[in-house]
Design a protein around this nucleic acid. Structure first.
Length: 858
RNA sequence: GCGGGCGUGGCGGAACCGGUAGACGCAGCGGACUUAAAAUCCGCUUUUCCGUAAGGAAAGUGCGGGUUCGAGUCCCGCCGUCCGUACCA
């Protein structure tokens, strides 16, 4: 047992490191896989080792830590691990800019950040720490890749990609900003490359449908994923191409077959009911029909080239004009083959969605209408509310409900019935089929980068793409690489790529693309659950710890990471490697840490340390010049409104920082960092120490009011932590501390003070341990059982009634709990104040809400 | 445009299922202790009005309506703000 000499101040500098060392020695937070306690895994999204911990990390990890510590005290076997999402571009950028090796840079950052995290006193099982850049992690990832490949869930095919011609690499969509590479600034080219894909679309339906089972996820995130997956029901059908009846001869040459124009093309629509309103058809510029027409007609080629140069930025798309090129071809409306529709190549049709081709119904689709107005196409109305049948379509398409008109056999049907009728006819007549289309596309995982997981494939001229044999895994990244030129260093390595084909033994070459780093983060939580050397994970252990009870991280990962992880878990389950289907039972997305911004009169951003408040205004410390105070924004280097956690830890200690991170702001909202806030938190830590000292007073005696307050606090704080409402737990802790300080010495007061320590131990663990030891308690407070509220003490025998007259509060009165209506009414009507107000009048009605309120209506 | 969140004192925010609005903290003001400061402790702190005072009255949760004995909470219509997303056929 550790002896702590009572002192009137808590010294965080000494205590923090002392207790951190104690927890380490005692292996307090090493997850116990052999116990029969309920197993709970708490996880925060692992950090990218960028160099330093920032306040956002501190907030994130503090929240998870409170939960992990509370669950331990509540008798769970807890797994609360930490790792590093250690592959990625910044390491290569550092290599290019500063000549450091990405591995050295990354490992140094990890060491620095690990030390920073340890100063926070997190209840982490460091024995399970992983870094995705180490072969003992990514080697297992390569094995999983090959398993998924064997199961047909990985394939290789040509795809259009964003190509940065300066950096010589593929860019993810997110890395293309206003049509330019985010790093090089060069205009991004569209290129067709052979890429590896995870077939996430195989699970599109399940991934969408099972969102409904994730009742412990934020509604917002489920919605975002639902939209991203983008499930639409509709009709797919085929148009046969014919020469245009609208133009002269000549175009028929296009269809001679020699030109390569396909004889037909498929379109998709969610509004088959409006097919009688069609007045044109259109294909995307990358559509085979468009390409073939362009090959034959220079004007078409010019049009397509022109479309490519126009920007893809949101603002440009917003204002972009709908443009089309009339191919001179036509198609027949399948519901009435006598109606011919001209076929355009159009800039607003996307190759990536549906079939890359549409029919246009201008009356009931805004884009089609804009297009029709420009090219003078007809805009026949086919849906109308009763009485509006003859109102012509103006500049706004009608997308509302109504009945079908001008639509032959559909006339009179509601929209939904019309859709069903057209699909039924198309299927009966075999020219189309009801279909579900998803916006979600397969996940392209090839990256032309060095600092990532090598894709374990060998390309052989004779045998094709051959998996690296299992006994040759991991395929380890070579260390001797150079970054003096742009592009992928693996490609120009003198020897690494030269290997023998595992199948035929002839000279072959390694795949030099590496995996998207999102693959690394798609299964790290499974590796945390068990870490066998010879395989990625142990199925039984994974089953014991998964799904993760609570996952905590930023909302910026709402779609990509969380969707990929859901896919990966499902994919592994589908090949029998895993039992869990959903990886994250509970998800919580925490708010950002913000700080005020300051700007000098010259418009320069200033750091918090460079300014001071004097009276109402802010001034620059150095010059005394006035400073413009900006709004509180996410901490960022560019705006200089960052606060370094290390400096704060030096000055205030871990508990003050943790307490502040949990105080005031609800965890899902932004937290505004302020000097006053951290100082207030530090003051509370000292105050908690003084409250603990009160427990040294061994005066005997009871204190009913304090004991009831204590049990209300136990109940409240327990519930608040369960629901991650840390700000409320903090407020209740203050209330209890206030009550204890006001109470007279008694055994009840000593008990309340000690219990308060246990209640706040998950939030401020160092002072809790220190005080616990100072009071002579045995063992670690981290191991102490969580206090239990006595239900009998949660109810008072007296209640305060609010007494209203006509709904306005006029008086309060304390009565025994559980009185009947007549007694309550009699008691209230006899109150002097009520007698005065009533002045002898008889109430029309008296409403009595038991144990709460009386409302007298006159 | 579409989808979602939020709007309560000087500030962050509480308020179970419609029942005493403003818990708790921060800031501020006044006082105690001190040679002084820090720390600490005590008190006040939504606004306006009446009263020397004890106390009392009125208004008040973005705006306008509604339901109800009673609305921050429910309904209808707006406004503001933040986030996400977008030629998705």
């Amino acid at each position: 047992m550790m002896t702590v000499i009572p002192s009137d101040r808590f010294d965080s500098t000494a205590a923090d490191s002392r207790w951190q060392a104690r927890w380490d020695e005692a292996r307090t937070f090493v997850a116990d896989s052999s116990s029969n306690k309920p197993r709970t895994m708490i996880l925060e999204m692992f950090p990218y080792p960028s160099g330093r911990i920032h306040m956002g990390h501190v907030r994130n990890y503090t929240m998870g830590d409170v939960l992990a510590r509370a669950r331990r005290m509540q008798g769970h076997a807890v797994l609360h691990p930490m790792g590093w999402d250690a592959f990625g571009m910044p390491a290569e950028n550092a290599a290019m800019e500063r000549g450091v090796h990405p591995g050295d840079w990354t490992r140094q950052n990890i060491a620095a950040m690990r030390a920073q995290l340890k100063r926070l006193g997190l209840a982490i099982d460091w024995t399970r720490e992983i870094a995705t850049c180490e072969p003992d992690y990514y080697g297992h990832e390569q094995a999983l890749f090959l398993d998924l490949l064997a199961a047909g869930l990985v394939d290789r095919r040509d795809a259009w990609v964003n190509w940065d011609p300066v950096d010589n690499t593929v860019l993810a969509n997110e890395q293309v900003i206003d049509g330019r590479g985010w790093r090089s600034g060069a205009p991004v080219e569209r290129r067709k490359l052979t890429q590896w894909f995870f077939r996430i679309t195989q699970f599109a339906d399940e991934l969408a449908a099972d969102l409904a089972t994730l009742d412990q996820w934020p509604e917002k995130v489920r919605l975002m994923q639902e939209n991203w997956i983008g499930k639409s029901r509709g009709l797919k059908f085929r148009f046969d191409l014919a020469p245009s009846p609208f133009r002269g001869e000549g175009d028929s040459a296009l269809l001679s077959g020699e030109r390569g124009v396909p004889p037909s093309f498929e379109v998709f629509t969610t509004r088959p009911d409006t097919l009688f309103g069609a007045s044109f058809a259109a294909v995307a510029i990358d559509h085979p029909v468009a390409q073939a027409v362009a090959a034959a007609q220079p004007a078409a080629a010019r049009f397509i080239a022109d479309c490519r140069t126009s920007g893809t930025a949101a603002a440009e798309i917003e204002t972009a004009e709908k443009k089309g090129f009339d191919t001179g071809l036509s198609v027949a409306n399948p519901l009435d083959p006598t109606r011919k529709l001209p076929v355009f190549i159009a800039n607003f049709v996307l190759m990536d969605y549906g079939t890359g081709a549409i029919f246009g119904c201008p009356a009931h689709d805004q884009r089609d209408l804009d297009f029709a107005r420009k090219y003078m196409l007809a805009t026949p109305r086919v849906v109308a509310l009763p009485g509006e049948e003859n109102i012509p379509i103006g500049d706004e398409a009608y997308t509302g409900p109504g009945r079908l008109i001008n639509s032959g056999f559909l006339d009179g049907l509601e929209v939904e019935a019309g859709k069903a009728a057209v699909i039924a006819r198309a299927e009966a007549e075999r020219w189309g089929k009801g279909t579900t289309v998803f916006r979600l596309r397969d996940w392209g995982v090839s990256r032309q980068r060095y600092w990532g997981t090598p894709i374990p494939i060998i390309h052989c001229e004779a045998c094709g793409a051959v998996p690296v044999p299992r006994d040759q895994l991991p395929v380890v990244l070579p260390e001797d690489v150079s970054f003096d030129r742009p592009g992928n260093p693996l490609d120009r390595h003198p020897t690494w790529r030269n290997v023998q084909c595992p199948t035929c033994g002839k000279p072959a070459r390694r795949e030099t693309d590496t995996l998207d780093t999102f693959v690394d983060s798609s299964w790290y939580f499974i590796r945390f659950a068990s870490q066998p050397a010879d395989r990625p994970f142990d199925k039984a252990e994974a089953a014991a710890w998964l799904p993760i009870a609570q996952y905590i991280g930023g909302v910026e990962h709402a779609i990509l990471h969380l969707l990929y992880a859901r896919f990966f878990t499902r994919a592994l389950a589908s090949i029998g490697q895993l039992d869990a289907v959903e990886p994250f039972k509970g998800l919580f997305t925490q708010g950002m840490v913000t700080h005020e911004t300051y700007r000098s009169t010259e418009g320069q951003w200033l750091e918090p340390g460079q300014v001071e408040k004097r009276g109402e205004g802010w001034f620059e410390l150095l010059t005394g010049h006035p400073v413009e105070l900006g709004r509180s924004e996410k901490m960022s280097k560019s705006k200089k409104n960052v606060v370094d956690p290390d400096a704060i830890l030096d000055r205030y200690g871990a508990d003050a920082v943790r307490w502040f991170m949990l105080s005031d702001s609800p965890p899902e909202r932004d937290l505004a960092w302020s000097l006053a806030g951290i100082e207030g938190a530090a003051r509370f830590v000292q105050r908690l120490w003084r409250v603990a000292l009160l427990a040294q007073d061994t005066s005997p005696g009871a204190d009913g009011a304090l004991t009831r307050q204590l049990h209300r606090s136990i109940d409240g704080i327990t519930h608040d932590i369960d629901r991650l409402q840390f700000n409320k737990a903090v407020a209740r802790a203050y209330e209890l501390a206030n009550a204890i300080e006001k109470a007279a010495p008694s055994a009840a007061r000593a008990e309340a003070a000690k219990t308060l320590l246990r209640l706040v131990a998950p939030m401020v663990p160092h002072i809790a341990e220190e005080a616990w030891a100072m009071l002579g308690e045995r063992g670690l407070i981290a191991d102490a059982p969580w206090p239990a509220a006595d239900p009998e003490l949660l109810v008072d025998d007296e209640v305060t009634y609010a007494v209203q007259v006509n709904g306005k509060l006029r008086e309060t009165v304390t009565l025994a709990k559980g009185l009947g209506r007549p007694e309550v009414e009699a008691g209230v009507m006899a109150l002097p104040r009520i007698l005065t107000l009533m002045a002898g009048a008889t109430p029309k009605k008296v409403i009595v809400v038991p144990d709460r309120l009386v409302n007298i209506v006159v």
